[in-house]
Design a protein around this nucleic acid. Structure first.
Lengths: 150, 150
DNA sequence: CTAATTTTGTCAAATTATTTGACAATAATA
DNA sequence: TATTATTGTCAAATAATTTGACAAAATTAG
């Protein structure tokens, strides 16, 4: 059985949030979001003048991280700078999800649970890393012999 | 260096989308979303009467999958049933992301790239699976000796 | 320390978006 | 064919957002 968890990827890339959601989830004020946007710290999409600003998922992550640094006592400028240094971490997590977790094409489902093929090991191309997910048990990572799909 | 990609997890769990976003991303009409909600196929959160309905990320995934089955020619009821059979796959992907990818506490960042510790192998607890992410290169999975954090 | 700048709060009017209920059209099923 | 399920469309009421403005508070520069 082969299934594609593509929706996950598409949803993450396409979903856009209204300003109020950004503020609510991140725990900052709408005024702050607007100001940060005006300063270019975050970007949004506005189809036409007077229409709602829409923010994507990754702008939300940015705002949440800036907020964390603000809470630690940094000024806005410093918080933005600290966040920028971490930017490639968020980008990396995003790549990992897209390329390995949601980019893979092989998901096996049976009564017992679900197995998600994360792809081959770099050191050893004959083996693949597989995540085993069963109810009531922690997610397990196991190695399996690579079996090319015919 | 230890960093926590916790924002990713929080954002996914807390972010809520307005009805219009659900419709736009999934490619269905607002009327459809409302009807499906009324039928109990998807759930939403409405704080008070007349206030906006908010849908979480996983309801969006549900809608997207139902839409896919509709496009394949299934009737609504059949599409919902097909989606229900896949429900545990989405749930599993969600668990994998939460427990392994975003639940882990160890992320190392340096100039060359980022390494994300996905945790120990189930067969061999002395080794951990690490994702190596570098610009311009595909995401690699490697095995490393497990080094307990002191 | 003081002045200038940055950042955020608040308010009000205009605009945009959503809800709700209703009726009708189309699709699916008995 | 009759019935039910599903979706389109419309209009009025309500809710949410934008925009611009002024002021307060926090930060930085002189």
């Amino acid at each position: 059985m082969r299934i594609f968890p593509k929706v996950f990827k598409t949803a993450m890339e396409k979903a856009q949030l209204p300003l109020s959601e950004m503020a609510r989830v991140a725990g900052v004020s709408a005024r702050q979001i607007r100001y940060w946007e005006k300063k270019g710290y975050i970007t949004s999409h506005q189809a036409q003048k007077n229409q709602n600003h829409k923010f994507n998922f990754f702008s939300l992550l940015k705002v949440m991280e800036i907020k964390e640094f603000l809470d630690e006592g940094y000024t806005l400028q410093a918080a933005v700078e600290k966040q920028r240094e971490r930017q490639n971490i968020l980008r990396s997590v995003r790549r990992l999800i897209n390329e390995r977790l949601l980019g893979v094409e092989e998901v096996a489902a049976c009564q017992e649970g679900v197995e998600i093929n994360l792809g081959p090991l770099d050191n050893d191309e004959t083996k693949v890393v597989v995540a085993q997910i069963k109810a009531g048990q922690p997610v397990k990572l196991i190695l399996k012999k690579h079996q090319p799909i015919d």
